[in-house]
Design a protein around this nucleic acid. Structure first.
Length: 315
RNA sequence: GUUUUUCAUUGU
């Protein structure tokens, strides 16, 4: 059985789900019986491959076939359901599972919190945080960061910040990712000042800002139309030994394009190429938008041809 | 000591 399990897992990891299924069927007929791990392996593998329906079928059948689901099984099936945004089913199953006496572990909570955040249901995710605490688990920094990100994405900056304070209170040390997440959230929300403040805070904490931090902050400056600040930050990051990447340039190109400075946007685009940062489709799209906005349609067509020559496929 | 589960940050 262990041998089969290992092989099945191998097939699934290699993206060969039909071969895995074949082995799985073979076990049913042969001398090796399936155990819970066999089912778990199949279910997770299929979920990862996006074949959630198949996984669910196996899950539904396993009890009749004499194997009871354990916490791994549930975690995998939650992962799958949430991946395809079947939130209601996940919730129902969560309740059912509890009545069956299979209690959620910290991975269950993380999976659920992550899934609901991705699906944009921050309230439910927050509820899981409450449950998690109530059941005696301690949320870790990744869980917090996930939640903070989820809240930022739906513009609930007040609650996001509250969670950040929670983190501090619990004597967790926020890391670069946590700070970047929050900083980006404030920036997107049009609160450049607060974003900037967080930027200062993270430096005070002894964290060295990375290209993501600067990009988020440049975006924040752009959001409030502060072109000067955006370019100052470009200088600043270079002084700090952080080299701008294609995302940095994209933010700046977008900012210039939006403020009717298509010419400058194009200059910057050229500069980026000179510096060895290859423009991608996003950069092209942004500059194209700027040119179109400025009614420079011929230039736009020219640029589009150039993109094609570089092997990019305009969308 | 050998098989299975989740995981966070930036651009159109």
């Amino acid at each position: 059985t262990r041998t089969y399990n290992t092989i099945i897992n191998g097939y699934l990891k290699a993206g060969k789900s039909s071969e895995a299924l074949q082995m799985f069927e073979e076990m049913q007929k042969g001398s090796c019986s399936r155990d819970t791990i066999t089912y778990n392996t199949m279910i997770m593998g299929l979920c990862k491959a996006g074949k959630v329906n198949d996984a669910y079928g196996i899950f539904a059948a396993m009890e009749h076939q004499g194997c009871s689901p354990d916490v791994y099984t549930y975690n995998s099936i939650f992962y799958g359901l949430l991946k395809v945004h079947r939130l209601a089913e996940a919730l129902t199953l969560f309740e059912v599972k509890k009545t069956k006496g299979c209690s959620p572990d910290h991975i269950t909570y993380r999976t659920l919190i992550n899934g609901f955040c991705i699906a944009g249901n921050a309230d439910q995710a927050l509820q899981f945080l409450v449950d998690l605490k109530a059941s005696g688990h301690v949320p870790d920094l990744v869980t917090y960061s996930t939640l903070i990100n989820g809240l930022c994405k739906v513009g609930r900056m007040d609650v996001a910040y509250k969670l950040y304070e929670d983190v501090l209170e619990q004597k967790f040390v926020p890391n670069l990712i946590t700070m970047n997440t929050l900083l980006n959230g404030f920036g997107k929300d049009g609160q450049f000042d607060r974003a900037h403040q967080l930027f200062a805070e993270l430096k005070d904490m002894g964290i060295r800002p990375d290209v993501v931090s600067y990009n988020a902050l440049i975006c924040a400056a752009g959001k409030v139309g502060n072109t000067d600040a955006a370019f100052q930050l470009l200088e600043e990051m270079q002084c700090a030994g952080c080299s701008p990447d294609v995302v940095t340039y994209s933010h700046l190109i977008e900012l210039l394009s939006n403020s009717d400075k298509a010419g400058q946007a194009w200059d910057l685009f050229t500069q980026m190429e000179k510096r060895g940062r290859h423009p991608d489709l996003v950069s092209y799209n942004l500059l194209l938008a700027g040119l179109v906005k400025a009614s420079r349609l011929d230039d736009a067509c020219y640029l589009m041809e150039e993109a094609k020559r570089k092997g990019l496929t305009p969308d």
